[in-house]
């Protein structure tokens, strides 16, 4: 599809995730880009990393996406024993499904009819990146980091999620070594759906607690 991209003379289109690509190889070279090239070359020349390792690392990060988390959530919705394992040791349960999450220490918090959970990192932007991929831009903003802990309900409303006063909001600030995943509540009317179809309802934001799963 045509995509207007100021400053570029050709069409970058949209990425597979539906977002515009960021200005890249044909923009003017910056100081920090030169630093990246220089550091990478020096690390390679000194035998600390290889070009293949850099490429493999990029591929590994690109392969991580919210779809991984969605598969975990859908499994938990379908399999009570798996859900129990996920809530008691999130990392082991993800590894059991074959996901390469590295050294991630994952705590999974469950949304119920009484509780809505929300994840933030006020000190930086910690995120379960080895499961879900890189965090959304809004997660790293000053506004989100500042406000999510003091007015979570208001921030949720801005994202279209209205948590009634009868429910408890639990905010989780990722201050140290744990990373967090919200296990959203399974939507009503999904009894006949299989795991794959259910995973399609699980959005990235619902696993951060800033959204809800899609309705079937």
């Amino acid at each position: 599809m045509p995509h207007d991209h100021p400053g570029h003379d050709h069409d970058h289109g949209l990425s597979p995730s539906g977002h515009p690509f960021r200005a890249d190889n044909d923009a003017p070279l910056t100081y920090w880009q030169r630093m990246e090239i220089a550091a990478r070359e020096l690390l390679i020349e000194k035998g600390i990393v290889t070009p293949a390792e850099v490429a493999a690392q990029i591929d590994a990060m690109d392969a991580r996406s919210p779809a991984n988390g969605a598969a975990v959530v859908a499994r938990a919705w379908c399999d009570p024993a798996f859900k129990a394992r996920l809530l008691s040791n999130g990392s082991d349960a993800c590894r059991e499904m074959g996901f390469d999450i590295g050294a991630l220490h994952l705590v999974v918090v469950e949304n119920t009819e009484d509780v809505h959970n929300l994840i933030v990192c006020t000190l930086c932007s910690c995120y379960p990146r080895t499961l879900l991929g890189l965090p959304p831009d809004w997660y790293k903003t000053r506004a989100y980091r500042s406000r999510a802990v003091i007015e979570p309900r208001k921030v949720l409303r801005e994202f279209g999620v209205d948590v009634p006063d009868s429910m408890t909001v639990r905010v989780h600030d990722s201050t140290a070594d744990m990373r967090y995943l919200v296990l959203p509540a399974r939507p009503a009317g999904t009894d006949g759906m299989d795991e794959t179809a259910l995973a399609g309802l699980v959005t990235r934001d619902s696993m951060i607690g800033m959204g809800l799963p899609k309705q079937p």
């Binding site: 990425s15 995730s17 977002h19 515009p20 690509f21 960021r22 200005a23 890249d24 190889n25 880009q33 990246e36 090239i37 550091a39 990478r40 690390l43 990393v49 390792e53 850099v54 690392q57 990029i58 990060m61 690109d62 933030v120 006020t122 000190l123 930086c124 890189l134 959304p136 831009d137 809004w138 903003t141 000053r142 506004a143 989100y144 980091r145 500042s146 406000r147 802990v149 003091i150 921030v155 801005e158 994202f159 600030d173």
Partner: peptide, 28 residues
């Protein structure tokens, strides 16, 4: 950097994918 509880405006919702050089920084 210790931002929790400070006053701030609306959360900006725009999103972008990352450029190759940014992915390389992440990889390094």
């Amino acid at each position: 950097h210790d931002m929790g509880g400070r006053d701030a405006g609306p959360v900006p919702k725009g999103e972008h994918d990352f450029a190759l050089w940014e992915k390389r920084v992440d990889a390094l």
